[in-house]
Amino acid sequence: MYTQSGVVSCTLSDHSLVYAARKSVKVKSKITFIEARSYRKFDQTMFTSDLTKEDWSPVLESTDVEVAWDSFIQIFVPICDIHAPIKKTRVTDRQPTWINEDYLKLRRDCQRSRSKAEKSARPEDWAEAKRLRNKLNYLADKLKAQDMNSRISNSKSDPRGLWKNLKTLLPGKKQSTISSLETESGTVTDGTDIANTINNFFATVGQKLASKFEGIDDTIVNTSGSNCNSGFHFCHITTCLVLKQLKKLNPHKATGLDNISARLLKAGAEPLSAPLTHIFNLSVTTGTVPSKWKISRVTPLFNVLLLETTDPSPSFLW
């Protein structure tokens, strides 16, 4: 969009100067949305009551661990969606807590003074603009210090809050993305291929290292002189043990890919202990683990210090 245009006569040339002023458009930042469970109307008593009323026989009578876990999910997740529904939330930039009306007023004055100096180009206007800028920077540093001292003083009895405030003072770590990966077969640029290459490397690194040690006797020798039982087996766990561990869960831990938070498991510990105990014991008896338990989100950390290595193996890049 052009706000102004015209023709200016120029004595240095036979041609006139044509000009146009274009209005700059501010580039909007990318809007980010996150999906999370909403606990605004969560009632633990009602949640526990609904779990108790459910029929858990499809889980308790199952002899296949995969079927048992799928049945548990089909019963448990709909109840979670009722009491703590998943909602999409827009993530916006929050205004710092130290900003007050005095700072906002001085910032507006500073912007007007700079705009005036750019138009007039007079030294006294530029001096006034610099004075207001320095005053604004001084006020910002003062307000930041006061806000941080206040937050640290208020969180002395809260170790979690104190550490959270102290981390804001530490320099943040820069995150870098991988656009390509050098392997023995060539350069990999596709994101899926990079992930599969890293996954294959770490899945086979143990076998490759073990193959380098040949002729080693792996027989276990008892040097203590006492008799030991060579047999080994897993024991079934009890419902009381599962209930105890569910009540110890930290509700502030991150939710996994199944959208089942530790808070919901802890809140429904009483009715959930029996079906979960059956699933755990069934897994021990059959020697299998539900396939959905093996799914995880892996984020490789880029090792910047080893970029100059000549070895193309991914092990030197991660």
Rank of each mutant, 00 (worst) to 15 (best):
P78Q: 09
S29A: 13
S115Y: 09
V242S: 02
D93C: 04
K167P: 06
T97R: 12
T92M: 03
T52L: 13
Y103L: 13
N100P: 06
T255N: 00
N196Y: 01
C235E: 11
P96F: 08
D147M: 03
T310G: 15
Q74H: 03
Q74I: 00
T97E: 13
M148A: 07
S179G: 10
A262V: 05
K156S: 12
T288D: 08
K144C: 07
C240H: 10
T204E: 08
C235H: 08
D14C: 08
P58G: 12
W163P: 04
K142Q: 09
T310W: 07
R107H: 14
F316L: 07
V91N: 05
L282V: 02
A129Q: 02
L317P: 01
D14L: 10
K174T: 15
F33R: 09
K266S: 10
L307P: 07
F42Q: 04
K247R: 12
I152N: 01
L257G: 03
I31W: 02
C235W: 06
D190K: 08
K292M: 05
W69K: 00
D81P: 00
S185T: 15
H83Y: 04
D14R: 11
G161A: 11
T288C: 06
N229R: 03
S9D: 11
N222D: 15
R94W: 01
C80T: 05
P290T: 11
W69L: 01
P300G: 10
L243D: 09
T255M: 01
R22H: 04
R133S: 05
F33K: 08
Q95F: 07
G225K: 09
L12R: 06
G172H: 09
A195P: 03
D64M: 00
I73Q: 00
T309E: 10
G287C: 08
G191D: 06
L132C: 05
R108C: 03
L307D: 12
D311N: 15
A21D: 12
L12G: 15
